[in-house]
Design a binder for these strands. Structure first.
Length: 950
RNA sequence: GCGGGCGUGGCGAAACUGGCAGACGCGCAGGAUUUAGGUUCCUGUUCCUCGGAGUGUGGGUUCGAGUCCCACCGCCCGCACCA
């Protein structure tokens, strides 16, 4: 099949192949023609309520904002997962245009990032050039799929007109602080006012005016939502850059490149996302997201309620975090992370060698080893004792690597009778295990031991509600209380009253490491003065464009060289780095920040720019923002109406974007508290992959099947299913399928494979089914010899009219609920009915084509015009079912006897229970099944079925 | 281990609040068209011993269970010594 669909003249037309049969070749001709027509007629341009894209008449029109997770423009182009999600959103967008909504639907490119930079390093070609080429390529692929994007709204995160506003948002975040009392971000100037007026005391209590400008700057920097911190970061020498926690794999390597990652203290940009932890958890309740994604976000944020407890020790106060303050009476030792700052001071001379050796082992232990190893407890005694504040007991202080410096305070109180890890540790090192709860008899029975408070008989720790024992001091008595919640509350009250601790909330979430020592990203709009304080550039100096260079790579190091230090490519551009500016106090020399932002930055707000892509006065016009993103009349708090993308972004992009949006919301720049109201995660496209005896993947398209076994070049291979892609050698390109079958067939196949959220294996041989369906639709209206509308179409009968209305009703329902697979099945059923009729009655043709339009838009447009219409099908009203035609006058209902279907009876649709019962009992098959016995009971569900109990 | 989800024909899957299990598609079988293959069209297609059996297994609730409840088995995704 050649690309233009024209038959080569040397090959005569097959005599049984009609000239206008809907083949892949004809589909291609039709599709390319309509794609040009749509462009020429600006069919998919969506008006705004105001501004340069404005048309005030849409202000009263209902809106719908449909968004895809925008792609990274990789050199490999689109993979099949993209058309899956994109087709779904396109169908949804097209359907809602036909229900009268003003639909915002476009596509942009998340184009900063490592692959383009690495390609540039290899080839010397500027990443902007390869990025533009890749974007052009992907635009062509998207266009071929018939996606109804508004082309005017497309953006690329790498475009200076776009990242000007990414930088501007950064300056907004930098110039804000989180007011923990009001739980909102506020401009930093308001913090200055509070300090100056004395409403808020300064950290050391001195009047604000008494602080030097540098001291004032330090205080403010400590409050900013974007701040520079000497903090533990993930340094990846192999990449020459730091990476965020989220970009480190479970085995301690870089997400990209798979290099070792080391914990190091370094000065880096951070975002204070932890300030929003509670709101990020609580506001999940506002969202129409799946429980699994909400669970992943909650789990990532890791909110847990407990208490901080202060223990005194020779080295000073050791503070621990615990979720079980009620078990403090059972704390018989403490464990600190090996990296805990107090370890040196706690270590006694006789233990110095042991502790040093253990710490050396712990730090040398790679993260992989820590994963692979079993959970056998190791540790070392520091030689020191701390005082348990609740009973005054001296308890030994140990270090062990099962306590993590990065969680809580890096120190725990060990309650071996009530915590399995502490129990194992105590057993391992012969530490005391005092019992503080009386486990129920069933617990002992379950373990086959006699009830006893002698923990040496216990096989494991007891966790749960049970009466406290040995849990009293002079002022607190928990003994006899049986529920843990009360125990916690009473203990917390005691801790606070006695200054030994306080109830608190701990989070797994940590602040977001926001700088990268790379080239292909947004430069920070920041300069440093001679005292080293950061200043953001004023708005009129934005965008701060990436300076040209031909040296794109950061300095990379031996991947195992943990002590190396980052050097950004921008560091080398000394003429750019040093700059003279007047920031309001006269011209001064400043040093620019040489970091760039992480790739996530651009994707944190792109949906807002889609709304108002050409605005050069603001990142978005407030009226436009309220229209597309604001609170809705139905009570929804606003945001994108439907956001479709892969589950791989469940915690990274979706958390960061929610955070930025909330800051913008607090500062009054947007009107909705959440960016994405409804989220839908599409499944993956899987495909069969084949491995030879050595475990190497072989080209899946060269594999032959014989008797259920698979062979590659004569040798047996084993089959598995995996994500379609280059590494498994099983990728099918969307372009090929479009060339062979047409985009409409591809769209239908992708949607018909199963529910949108399910992963499904691609089967090339199945694609033809959807081509045959469209072919039959075509043949039911078009003369395959002439290509003209058929003149022999049957007349519309009542039964067909009813089938049509049922289809309309079902398809509407399915499209609204993203059930495209069943929508397609209903249309096939309708068409099969029409095929038996001998064609599609002219009176039904418009409605058939309109229902097809969202799913197979090119074919629908072609048929729409063959039917004599001159305008695009895009904005036609989607057919509406007549409810009176959805129910038949008489219906067939099954009759069950003792739960088994024995007969079917015809009754009036509105027959009452008595009539149905009488009809059913009169049925000969029913009587036979009853065997002459009188029914004991008859259950009638009007309009549905009869069940007789014999 | 914890959290989320899922088990239905040869395959992808339908069955929305408990009410005719297997819609629709692939594949397969038979037939028509064709010199043939391919294409297209028509008919059939859950399984077997033709009376039944049947939605991972075993219980339960119910007139009635793929759907609800309990236990177990298996698979997928996420997190993982999180105090």
């Amino acid at each position: 099949m050649n690309a233009t669909g024209e038959q080569p003249p040397s090959e005569p037309q097959q005599n049984d192949q009609q000239a206008f049969r809907y083949t892949g070749a004809l589909a291609q001709q039709i599709e390319l023609r309509w794609q040009d027509w749509w462009d020429e007629h600006h069919t998919f341009e969506t008006p705004n309520p105001a501004g340069p894209l404005g048309d005030p008449t849409v202000r009263e029109q209902a809106k719908l904002f449909v968004l895809d997770m925008f792609p990274y423009p990789s050199g490999a182009g689109l993979h099949m997962g993209h058309p899956l999600g994109f087709t779904a959103t396109d169908i949804f967008a097209r359907y809602h245009r036909m229900t009268g909504k003003n639909v915002l639907y476009t596509m942009g490119f998340d184009a900063f990032g490592l692959p383009a930079e690495q390609y540039a390093v290899q080839t010397g070609q500027h990443p902007a050039i390869t990025t533009d080429q890749n974007i052009a390529n992907i635009r062509a692929q998207l266009r071929r799929l018939g996606l109804s994007h508004d082309p005017r709204r497309s953006i690329s995160t790498t475009d200076p007109d776009y990242y000007r506003w990414t930088q501007w948002i950064f300056t907004q975040i930098f110039n804000s602080w989180y007011d923990a009392d009001r739980k909102v971000a506020r401009p930093i100037a308001e913090l200055v006012d509070e300090f100056r007026s004395g409403v808020r005391p300064t950290p050391d209590g001195r009047p604000w005016a008494d602080l030097s400008p540098s001291q004032q700057a330090d205080v403010l920097d400590d409050h900013r939502l974007a701040y520079i911190s000497e903090a533990p970061v993930n340094w990846c020498p192999g990449l020459g850059t730091v990476v965020a926690n989220e970009e480190v794999t479970a085995d301690g390597r870089s997400d990209r490149g798979n290099f070792p990652v080391f914990k190091r203290n370094m000065r880096q940009w951070m975002m204070r996302i932890t300030a929003y932890a509670d709101r990020l958890v609580d506001d999940l309740d506002l969202l129409d997201w799946t429980d699994s994604i909400k669970a992943m976000q909650r789990n990532w944020i890791g909110r847990s309620e407990g208490a901080r407890v202060h223990f005194s020790s020779p080295a000073g106060t050791i503070t621990v975090f615990t979720t079980r303050p009620d078990t403090l009476f059972g704390a018989s030792f403490m464990v600190l992370a090996p990296e805990h700052p107090l370890v040196d001071a706690l270590t006694t001379p006789d233990q110095a060698a042991t502790v040093a050796e253990y710490r050396r082992q712990a730090s040398a232990k790679s993260d992989i080893a820590r994963q692979v190893e079993d959970k056998t407890k190791t540790g070392a005694f520091t030689g020191s004792y701390a005082t348990n504040p609740i009973n005054g007991e001296q308890i030994p202080v140990w270090i062990a690597d099962y306590v993590l410096m990065g969680y809580g305070t890096g120190a725990i109180m060990a309650v071996p009778c009530g915590d399995e890890r502490d129990f194992e540790f105590a057993r391992q090192f012969g530490l005391p295990i005092p019992a503080i709860q009386q486990p129920p008899a069933s617990w002992f029975a379950g373990h086959g031991i006699d009830p006893s408070l002698d923990t040496s008989t216990w096989p494991q720790a007891f966790v749960g509600d049970a009466a406290y024992v040995n849990s009293a001091n002079g002022t607190l008595d928990l003994n006899g209380i049986v529920d843990v919640a009360t125990g916690k509350r009473r203990t917390n009250e005691w801790l606070e009253a006695n200054g030994c601790g306080e109830a608190t909330v701990n989070y797994k979430l940590r602040d977001w490491l926001f700088s990268r020592q790379r080239y292909w990203g947004e430069p920070f709009p920041v300069v440093y003065d001679e005292s080293g304080h950061a200043h953001t550039l004023p708005d009129e100096l934005l965008p701060l464009e990436l300076p040209p260079t031909d040296s794109f790579s950061p300095r990379t190091f031996d991947p195992d060289d943990a002590m190396s230090n980052p050097e950004s490519p921008l560091d080398r551009l000394t003429e750019w780095v040093w700059v003279e500016l007047d920031l309001g106090d006269g011209p001064r020399r400043y040093r620019r920040d040489t970091n760039v932002m992480p790739q996530w930055a651009g994707s944190c707000w792109y949906e807002l720019r889609y709304c108002d892509p050409t605005n050069d006065q603001a990142f978005i016009d407030p009226e436009v923002e309220r229209y597309w993103m604001g609170p809705q009349p139905d009570g929804r708090t606003g945001g994108v109406d439907l956001y479709v993308g892969g589950v791989e972004h469940a915690v990274l992009h979706l958390l960061y974007a929610r955070f930025w949006h909330k800051v913008l919301f607090d500062l009054g720049h947007v009107s909705s508290p959440e960016p994405y109201h409804r989220l839908f995660n599409q499944g993956y496209i899987l495909a069969a992959a084949f491995q030879d005896e050595r475990g190497m993947y072989v080209d899946a398209f060269g594999v032959e099947e014989r008797d259920g076994k698979h062979f590659f070049e004569g040798r047996p291979v084993t089959r598995e299913y995996g994500k379609m892609g280059k590494s498994l050698k099983n990728a099918v390109a969307p372009d090929e399928v479009c060339a062979d079958y047409g985009a409409d067939t591809l769209r239908l196949y992708l949607m018909s494979m199963g529910p949108l959220d399910a992963s499904r294996p691609w089967e090339s041989k199945d694609v033809v089914g959807m081509l045959r369906f469209l072919q039959r639709v075509w043949r039911n209206l078009v003369d395959e010899d002439t290509g003209a509308l058929r003149t022999d179409l049957p007349v519309l009968d009542d039964a067909t009219e009813r089938v049509l209305h049922r289809t309309i009703d079902g398809v509407r329902n399915d499209l609204e609920n993203l059930r495209f697979n069943t929508a397609i099945a209903k249309l096939i059923e309708l068409n099969n009915h029409l095929t038996k009729l001998g064609g599609c009655p002219r009176e039904a043709a418009d409605r058939l084509v309109l229902m097809l339009a969202p799913l197979a838009p090119h074919l629908a447009e072609e048929l729409w015009h063959l039917l004599g219409h001159t305008d695009t099908v895009t904005y036609q009203q989607f057919p509406v079912a007549d409810p009176t035609l959805l129910v038949d006058d008489t219906i067939e209902v099954p009759v069950q006897v003792n739960g088994k279907v024995r007969s079917r009876i015809m009754v009036a649709a509105d027959a009452d229970q008595a009539t149905m019962e009488a009809t059913a009992l009169a049925d000969p098959k029913v009587q036979a099944a009853l065997g002459g016995n009188a029914p004991k009971k008859v259950i009638v569900v009007p309009g549905r079925m009869v069940n007789i109990v014999g």
